[in-house]
Design a protein around this nucleic acid. Sequence first.
DNA 1: TTGAAAGCGGTACCAG
DNA 2: CTGGTACCGCTTTCAA
Lengths: 334, 334
Amino acid sequence: MSTIKDVARIAGVSIATVSRVVNNGPKVGSKTREKVSLVMKELGYTPNANARALVTQKSTTIGVVVPELTDPFFASLASGVDKIARVNNMQLLLSTAQQSAESERAAINLLIERRCQAIVLHSKKLPDAELIALCEKMPGLILIDRLIENIKDKCVWLDNEEGGKIAARHLMSLGHKEVACISSKYQIEDPTLRLKGFSQEYRRAGIEINAEHIEYGEPNQQGGEVATQRLLASGHKFSAIFVYNDAMAIGAISTLEDNGYKVPQAVSVIGFDDVLISRYSRPKLTTLHYPVEEMAQQAALLSLNKPIEHEKLNNGGYKYIPHIVKRESTSEKS
Amino acid sequence: MSTIKDVARIAGVSIATVSRVVNNGPKVGSKTREKVSLVMKELGYTPNANARALVTQKSTTIGVVVPELTDPFFASLASGVDKIARVNNMQLLLSTAQQSAESERAAINLLIERRCQAIVLHSKKLPDAELIALCEKMPGLILIDRLIENIKDKCVWLDNEEGGKIAARHLMSLGHKEVACISSKYQIEDPTLRLKGFSQEYRRAGIEINAEHIEYGEPNQQGGEVATQRLLASGHKFSAIFVYNDAMAIGAISTLEDNGYKVPQAVSVIGFDDVLISRYSRPKLTTLHYPVEEMAQQAALLSLNKPIEHEKLNNGGYKYIPHIVKRESTSEKS
DNA sequence: TTGAAAGCGGTACCAG
DNA sequence: CTGGTACCGCTTTCAA
């Protein structure tokens, strides 16, 4: 791999001049420029980005930490960051973190070693305090999908509680008074908040959602199937189910239909996230759209210190509200 | 961000010593080591990977070029490479390329600038000759999902033709003699080969698949729907459809059922790729499993020059054969 | 318009 | 066991 020196030597100029040509420097004679360009072509010269980063003290990569690429949710997240990266002539440096604090720490560290200025971090395991300290140290660090009050303006997050409320309003508007819920057995923030918003809204209408109306399971299709079986077995009546996420919702539909309950005629089902599969399922899933890609873009922009103008902070943080996508799995209570 | 010099100064040692401590160098006094370690902690020192890469002339990143992260197929591909990267203490540097030769070229170039030794490249647009030249220049470049005879041993690819044959055999074994096909309107290699293998196998059984049995469309769900409508309108009889990919297959099923054809009772449908949605659809899709992630891992290993031992070259290239996943969308002809 | 030279943050060889 | 030092490839003054 030829270096700037090779080019300089062969072109009979100094490396300073070559550097100017490479960077479209201002003062270079047109003849010199041509000669140097020619030599660069002939040698197949490609500037060394590492050396550049070292001397300029700035990296042209933007780092992303996610748990898993195969999960379409995180793929969208990474993709959103990538789009912003491209536009700004940067590249994605990806660090996958297992679901542990230690692993998340390691992933971030790799990014710091590479001197990434901009980092979009999806962390569910690291404690608030550590994240706060990190943000202080790295001004280009942005948290996505998590809200920490002390560093609100570094956070891009979804209002899960409001999502639950929206789901509740939708079902109520369709006349559903007897509802059941399926949630994730992992009591992290998201499922709790979604459920909380949902219950609150029903309570406002005088309908109480008790523990017996809620079943928990693994947050995947199978978990949805199992939870639905238990719901069915419990003997409680319901004409609609609010499900934690789309995968579980699809599992729920599957079990309902296998047991002779038509969706949405007999039971309406509403999911959450609006991942790809919700459009492919039959019936197509009514769900709450989680604008991950948009949020990831905003996060990337923030990390580059170029937030979208019209996306003003509301209340100090970058809050996003899910919107409902009405498809085929919910309908008026018959 | 503190540097090795800061650490050296504060610890009262030379930078050489600090370097040794950082790299667990062999000859360092335990007291010195402790003192240096302490200072590193206090300063929050993180070695600069760019500087390291510069002097050692080796990068700890492995580059990947894919068109799109949101496509689950490419997400799996990237994920496979990532897994190998992790195991080898490396990171993923992602370069997304639009569907054009120019864009692919640019993506590769960014990776070369970063001096990635190992690169896994998914390229459909660059001409063979250019890729061959590139491989010569970069020993760590591996092509995935593409076969070029001259550089067979740099290629990790799927035998699409064989996949078509396997699909044909499956349908024949179920007694389907009147079949239709849905293919991609983009006549790149893959769809052509899949169709070729499929037709060949049927021809061996004395059944000819003519142009009138084939409809083309965009390689997505909607494309599948449209193609199926045309198939239905054409008036040709068929009890099974071989579809280019899963997304189209799901579209096909949707249209079939909307028109009163039960799947698989009235019409069997077989897809290709075995992406996530095929497990979530109803009925669950019978399809050909495309082991992308496994292939990506092999490609990554190859680029690191550590191919899996038992995965010997067969016939000079790393060929993979899809296997059939029998789920619910195909059944015996009634 | 061009060149010389001082680093950027490390590594590794050579002395001591 | 530790320190001095010559680079790695490039950018960026400062002079010429």
